[in-house]
């Protein structure tokens, strides 16, 4: 079964289940796509190159017109920050952050830049009940803040803990996350601000499928310099941004237990029972009703308690 067919099927079943009177609009069924676009762009992130200068954070802040940070972008004390024992993560005020790790037995610390990975089949997108998210043909996962209700289901769903929420907005709290610089750059074919700003070219921008080759080449051509894994090639159905590293990924804070299948696959079984319940239940229970009340009065207020004590 092709992915598109499956998507339509899932959409149809949930929509059908949503309400018997809802005729889902064509729009709803056509929006987004669950297959990675063949010519979608991506970014290869080579952790071996990153020196933790935080220039990319500054670039994102400028490009996305984000609020003033708590500390300057050349303040490296942020690497020592722990929040509830956790290193920093992207928020509504910073779409990307760089963290420092100390892999076992390595001389140099390892730095890892985190931002939205622009998944091929984004969990955030599939979990959103107002369809605020879109995976664009260019490969970006963007969202429409105008329809965001603020349910934060996408934050629950995102396996990489990416989306932030403007908790401090009174009138219009919405989701905020990295958008691959879609509006200002990607749309015109230009690389994102963070990619361009990096002095070490940690990030290489290009078509995802070309980058995958480059990543494999780098691993092949530099024996011993990389662990033989491309994080994001398969994880949760593949991500637009993916990583190669010289240290095992779990030592750089990556979740290596993520399923290889897209997150939506988990939910598929449940969505599949929806049409079943919808079609079978009414007949079943009306049948029960007819059987159970056969030959009895329909009236309300009859108290048959005495003779019906135990069944």
């Amino acid at each position: 079964m092709s992915k598109i067919t499956r998507r339509k099927f899932l959409a149809g079943s949930a929509a059908g289940g949503a309400a018997m009177m809802l005729a889902p609009s064509k729009n709803a069924l056509a929006a987004g796509s669950f297959e990675g676009f063949p010519d979608g762009m991506g970014v290869l992130v080579d952790l071996t190159r990153c020196v933790g200068c935080r220039t990319c954070e500054a670039a994102c802040n400028t490009e996305q017109k984000l609020p003033e940070p708590a500390k300057p972008f050349d303040d490296y004390s942020v690497f020592d920050e722990l929040h509830h024992g956790q290193k920093r993560r992207p928020t509504d005020k910073a779409y990307t952050v760089v963290n420092r790790y100390e892999p076992e037995g390595a001389d140099e610390p390892l730095y890892r830049k985190i931002q939205c990975n622009h998944c091929n089949e984004p969990a955030c997108l599939t979990s959103c009940f107002v369809n605020a998210y879109t995976k664009t043909p260019e490969g970006a996962v963007i969202y429409n803040a105008k329809v965001c209700v603020g349910c934060r289901n996408c934050m629950i769903a995102c396996p990489f803990h990416i989306p932030g929420y403007t908790y401090n907005s009174v009138l219009n709290p919405v989701i905020k996350k990295c958008i691959f610089c879609y509006d200002t750059r990607l749309k015109e074919g230009k690389p994102p601000a963070c990619v361009e700003s990096c002095p070490q070219q940690v990030m290489t921008f290009g078509k995802r499928k070309d980058l995958m080759k480059i990543a494999n080449d780098r691993i092949k051509k530099n024996p011993g310099q990389y662990v033989n894994h491309i994080y994001g090639e398969k994880e949760v159905g593949g991500t637009g941004w993916f990583y190669i590293s010289n240290a095992p990924f779990e030592q750089a804070g990556f979740d290596i237990d993520l399923p290889k299948k897209p997150i939506i696959d988990n939910v598929k079984d449940f969505l599949a029972i929806v049409p079943m319940v919808l079609t079978i239940w009414p007949a079943l229970f009306t049948g029960f009703h007819l059987l159970a009340t056969k030959g009895k009065s329909h009236g309300h207020g009859d108290d048959h308690s005495a003779e019906q004590e135990d069944h």
């Binding site: 998507r7 899932l10 959409a11 149809g12 949930a14 929509a15 289940g17 949503a18 309400a19 809802l22 889902p24 609009s25 729009n27 709803a28 069924l29 599939t126 979990s127 959103c128 009940f129 107002v130 369809n131 605020a132 429409n144 329809v147 349910c151 289901n153 939506i264 939910v267 449940f270 969505l271 929806v274």
Partner: peptide, 15 residues
Amino acid sequence: YSFGPAAVLFLVGWH
């Protein structure tokens, strides 16, 4: 206004 019919929450909301 805006439907996300493949989402479980959509189902919850409607129901």
